[in-house]
């Protein structure tokens, strides 16, 4: 969908063709859902947050001014929904939302040899598990960059931060996530000359 087509669709919805909104949902549900999933860490909350975000977007559609991409505007709404949910969950019980996804599941210490698929699956789970340990504002910046593919400038618009702050948040989020993953036993390919950091070879190598 081009930006012009999208704008036309939005105008149709604003003019009362409510059902046209479903096309906008379909066009953006993947980005919105994956943003929510990475922010919240589980599928049920991600579904709830996505639906809430689209609903809020519908109600506020006349505030979309069209000077940014519609997706960027939607991600802002989604981010706020997620931050609200995280905050409420934090009040209810410490990190009940963020730590749900297998936090207590023990990690295999030893991996049977070639199973790269298993490793990759484990890495994927570990990424999500540790992502939810990042402070929400940092997590949001990183997810908007890597999951939603936004530029620093677009993330600045979504979060209200300066682009320079966005850049530094993303860096710090990555460094923290890398540290958590390393501590968690998820090692990455060492360089060929690096004999001490062999996969599984030791956390403090």
């Amino acid at each position: 969908m081009t930006r012009e087509e999208e704008r036309a669709l939005i105008d149709h919805v604003l003019d009362g063709e409510t059902e046209q909104f479903e096309k906008l949902v379909k066009a953006h549900e993947k980005g919105v859902y994956n943003l929510a999933l990475r922010m919240l860490g589980n599928e049920q909350d991600a579904l709830d947050a996505s639906q809430e975000a689209f609903f809020r977007a519908y109600r506020s559609l006349d505030r979309f001014r069209g000077d940014s991409k519609f997706s960027v505007w939607l991600y802002r709404v989604t981010g706020n929904v997620c931050l609200d949910m995280l905050r409420k969950a934090g009040r209810r019980r410490e990190s009940s939302l963020t730590d749900e996804d297998g936090e207590d599941m023990p990690l295999p210490d030893e991996r049977s040899d070639p199973q790269r698929e298993l490793e990759k699956k484990e890495l994927r789970r570990a990424v999500q598990r540790n992502l939810t340990k990042l402070e929400p504002g940092f997590r949001q910046a990183l997810v908007l960059r890597d999951v939603n593919g936004l530029t620093y400038d677009e993330i600045a618009r979504v979060t209200g931060l300066e682009a320079g702050t966005v850049k530094s948040r993303i860096f710090r989020a990555r460094r923290k996530l890398a540290a958590l993953l390393t501590r968690d036993g998820n090692f990455f390919e060492p360089s060929p000359s690096d004999t001490t950091a062999r996969k599984g070879g030791g956390r403090d190598a």
């Binding site: 993947k30 859902y33 994956n34 599928e43 996505s50 994927r124 990424v127 997810v143 996530l177 390393t182």
Partner: peptide, 18 residues
């Protein structure tokens, strides 16, 4: 290497919405 690995997961491992 860690940056590259985890970034690949984040960028490629997208879920299908329900």
């Amino acid at each position: 290497a860690a940056f590259t690995g985890m970034t690949a997961v984040l960028r490629e491992d997208l879920a299908e919405p329900p």
